[in-house]
């Protein structure tokens, strides 16, 4: 085991630990997380296997395959983020709008009462 492997495995373990402790503890998430972390540690320890998979798919190196997958993964994440931001925005808009209208209503009611 060389330096980079220790570093990467430590990172995976820390991320996994952080996720379990801080964020979610639903059993489904835990299973998915363990599988992914297990796979990550496995490929860190035996990187030559990624080359085998890559060659089967017609890509030269395992690192290249990972790079291509990452690109699409990040595009997917970005789109999800956009969708989430838009949902958040519409919730915020609705809240601000209701509050603004309510305030304006009460003010105009006050004005009417003063008029009497």
């Amino acid at each position: 085991m060389n330096g980079i492997q220790i570093l990467l495995i430590a990172a995976v373990v820390v991320i996994m630990f952080f996720y379990i402790v801080r964020l979610r503890s639903a059993i489904f998430d835990l299973i998915i997380l363990t599988i992914f972390s297990g796979m990550a540690i496995f490929f860190i320890l035996f990187p030559e296997y990624t080359n085998d998979i890559a060659r089967k798919m017609g890509v030269g190196r395992g690192a290249d395959l990972l790079f291509y997958i990452c690109i699409f993964f990040f595009i997917f994440i970005i789109l999800k983020m956009f969708a989430r931001i838009r949902r958040l925005e519409s919730t915020l808009t609705e809240l601000v709008r209701q509050q603004a209208i309510k305030e304006a209503q009460s003010q105009s009611a006050e004005y009417k009462e003063e008029g009497k």
Binding site: L92, T93, V96, R97, A100, I101, A104, Q107, Y111
Partner: peptide, 29 residues
């Protein structure tokens, strides 16, 4: 002049489209 005009204020800046919709909803009410 709030005696003859209505005034609505968004607490945060949302954009012109949101402001229009707020005004339209208010006018309908």
């Amino acid at each position: 002049p709030t005696a003859s005009a209505f005034f609505i204020r968004h607490k945060v800046n949302l954009g012109q489209g949101a402001a229009l919709q707020t005004g339209i909803s208010f006018a309908l009410e």
